[in-house]
């Protein structure tokens, strides 16, 4: 059995995802996510004894590009959709603490 989804976990996931949730939404999502996981529990009942673990859902491999530069966007284009910019930087609220 997978870990049941309770309301606290939904709030935690909301915080991690920077989403504000009302109490109603927390209840709704707890139920919905619970249903989804229940479905996966059903899959767990399959016999997978002889099936190799799958690391990736896509069967393709080695989709690789040559290391050759191509033009991107101009600074003006890059900043065009930003809500705010300061000189040629994207402008965001002051970040405190360590910057890297």
């Amino acid at each position: 059995m997978s870990q049941p989804i309770d309301e606290n976990m939904v709030r935690h996931i909301g915080t991690l995802s920077r989403i504000e949730l009302t109490d109603d939404e927390v209840r709704t999502f707890a139920k919905q996510l619970g249903d989804v996981l229940e479905y996966f529990d059903k899959l767990q009942q399959l016999d997978t004894e002889d099936v190799a673990p799958m690391a990736h859902a896509v069967e393709l491999t080695n989709v690789l590009a040559d290391d050759a530069p191509r033009n991107g966007l101009s600074t003006e284009q890059a900043l065009a959709n930003a809500p705010q910019h300061e000189r040629d930087f994207f402008r965001v609220p002051k970040v405190l603490g360590e910057g890297s």
Binding site: Q84, E86, R87, F89, F90, R91, K94, G99, S100
Partner: peptide
Amino acid sequence: NIHDLPGCTGV
């Protein structure tokens, strides 16, 4: 992140 802009952070 550029921290020395006035009142904001630049990216």
